[in-house]
Design a protein around this nucleic acid. Sequence first.
DNA 1: CTGCATCCGATCAGATACTG
DNA 2: CAGTATCTGATCGGATGCAG
Lengths: 126, 126
Amino acid sequence: MVTKQLSGLPEDADLRRADSLAREIFSDVANKWALLIIEALGERTLRFSELRTEVEGISHKMLTQNLRMLERNGLAVRKVHPTVPPRVEYTLTEPGQALRATVDLICGWTHQHLSHIESARRRFGS
Amino acid sequence: MVTKQLSGLPEDADLRRADSLAREIFSDVANKWALLIIEALGERTLRFSELRTEVEGISHKMLTQNLRMLERNGLAVRKVHPTVPPRVEYTLTEPGQALRATVDLICGWTHQHLSHIESARRRFGS
DNA sequence: CTGCATCCGATCAGATACTG
DNA sequence: CAGTATCTGATCGGATGCAG
């Protein structure tokens, strides 16, 4: 699949590095705000302030922080228009879009199982 | 779709309650440990101690906490065998299985885009 | 408008110890 | 083995103020 190494061990090291990287990405992405931002962006391009209102409940700080993370991982691109006042737009990249598709499924799952979960909670006693 | 109310406003109230419930469930589920536990359980039944080694890096405390949450939301069932030493097994319910399918997709996505993300990080400068 | 820094309280998460 | 409780440090997350 990938370029083979000639010496004996390096490919194992590569696997381990890939695993830890995967875990790191998973941790970055598997959090409430990141997923909600990705869901909000969807197919469109949104400004910082639009995202602020779109992803309701998110604070200025968390929005900035998560957008930086998405940009760093190449899931979203940040485009600055040199106007005054400044205008900054965020768009999902192709990998970002692909991830959004799976987030959509989670949202669908949530609504589909609302009543089951609600009754499970009543049974659980809280 | 669902039972209509006769008076004017209650259905709106229902919608708002459902939305806030959906957000709550989303927050419960959209976190690293919960998703990793769901992924580990997969189709099989696992003991507490097995889960502890299976989802690596998780602490005793976080495992307990997240298992209670999954149980409360009806995503997993907890079966206690009254033996000595005690034996407690966890299994995903049907809704849990459905969610796991989407988590699988996220895992697939992660590995599929590893190299893209790795190079994006280099470009980003860290 | 967007972004960064700071302060501060709340929550998270690990380590440890103790029960059935 | 499984679970609970407690203590402690780390991180999260909101509010505010300031800069480009």
